[in-house]
């Protein structure tokens, strides 16, 4: 099943260049409704006040890490079922296990390509 490409996507990264890259890659695979947050607190505020179909977040952020953001999202009654993809350079098994245990929907390791991004979004949205 093809995901609804008009859904709102929130991308979270404290590195603005990476936000720009992900936004452009999403645009290439036809997801045009993209908002950005540069830290976990801003992301939570946007999620609580908006209507997002997908969160794509980095892990390595300050002061709230992507893992902590994921935990906050999963603990929030209204947000707990929002699909959450982690895109990160953290590629140790313990990271993947911790993210899975916290409720991550999928996990993309950097560097990644547009095809991987498209594939993971489709997989996640087919289970949403």
């Amino acid at each position: 099943m093809t995901p609804d490409k008009s859904m709102n996507v929130l991308i979270v990264d404290d590195y603005k260049t990476m936000l720009r890259i992900i936004r452009n890659l999403l645009k290439q695979i036809e997801y045009n409704n993209v908002d950005e947050a540069t830290d976990g607190a801003e992301a939570l505020a946007r999620l609580r006040s908006g209507n997002y179909g997908l969160v794509i977040s980095d892990w390595n952020m300050q002061p709230m890490t992507g893992l902590q953001l994921l935990q906050e999202v999963r603990a929030d009654a209204r947000l707990k079922s929002v699909p959450f993809i982690m895109i990160t350079a953290e590629s140790k098994a313990e990271n993947v296990v911790a993210a899975k245990q916290a409720g991550v929907s999928n996990y993309i390791v950097k560097p990644f390509n547009a095809e991987t991004l498209r594939d993971k979004i489709e997989r996640v949205m087919s289970h949403a």
Partner: peptide, 22 residues
Amino acid sequence: ALLHGPQLPANAMHQSDIDALL
């Protein structure tokens, strides 16, 4: 505590390894 940063290519898990783990 889990932040290690990028691993050297020889030590890094590839996307296919991560997919299998998930």
